[in-house]
Write a protein that binds this DNA or RNA. Structure first.
Lengths: 126, 126
DNA sequence: CCGACGCATAGACGCGCGTCGATGGGACGC
DNA sequence: GCGTCCCATCGACGCGCGTCTATGCGTCGG
């Protein structure tokens, strides 16, 4: 079992965690280290995955050994066909998923060149 | 550089990726392996992190060595103080963050007993 | 005790999201 | 060629989210 204790190793010590000393009327703005464009990209990915249906789809495709026909998802989700198609479009627009059409069917898989951050987020689940 | 190739190891082979054979009018519903409650919990976490402001806050707290006063975030984000407070409440309700009040100030940190999935998602970013 | 400070809550507003039914259009079987 | 199947798009609707201003509450300094 993994247990992450953020600041201390023992319980009561954690309670006494050093709260920084403060002065009224003085704040310390400069603490953003990650870069706004990276934040924007990442939150877009997270928004794409934040819907239960889309998350389920993304995880299925992560674990699938071959591309999956969207009709199988339509049959699984107790949602209308346009709604499932809409969710797929969202995943497509976010670059999470790619479509291959053959005959009547549309087969989906995770995008081959998935950004490493996106891949790590997906692998962090389940 | 890490490059993830989903189904094959060589480019053109991937193009020929085996699309499953299909029959008209027949779909294969049973492909949900993850469990609805886990999906619901995880998508709730993702929704909490999907906003750029909240993501920035969460990453700051992940990297911080001591709890951070919310007034610093208010000073950083070019947002009104109630809006920042609102975002913090969202992170609190999602269990991502914990507050310690001392005097005038509210200090925030990542929740000590963070679920391992949440912790892994945070670590997957940046 | 009173004013200033830090923070949370309440209420309002606009926009985007998730969902649906209806429609269109391409591909296949007969 | 026509009907059927599969899928995407459109338009509409209700709800929730992000943001704001206004307000309330607790804490400290003078």
């Amino acid at each position: 079992m993994t247990f992450v204790n953020t600041y201390a190793t023992i319980g009561y010590v954690e309670k006494l965690a050093v709260l920084p000393e403060r002065e009224r009327g003085v704040c310390c703005p400069p603490r953003l280290k990650v870069g706004p464009e990276k934040i924007e990209q990442t939150s877009e990915i997270l928004r794409a995955l934040a819907d239960p249906t889309r998350l389920q789809i993304a995880l299925c495709l992560r674990d699938a050994k071959a591309p999956v026909c969207i009709c199988d998802f339509t049959a699984s989700f107790d949602l209308s066909q346009p709604t499932v198609s809409h969710h797929m479009a969202k995943l497509r627009d976010a670059g999470v998923v790619e479509v291959t059409k053959r005959g009547i069917w549309s087969f989906y898989r995770l995008a081959p060149g998935l950004p490493s951050t996106t891949r790590r987020i997906l692998d962090a689940i389940g």
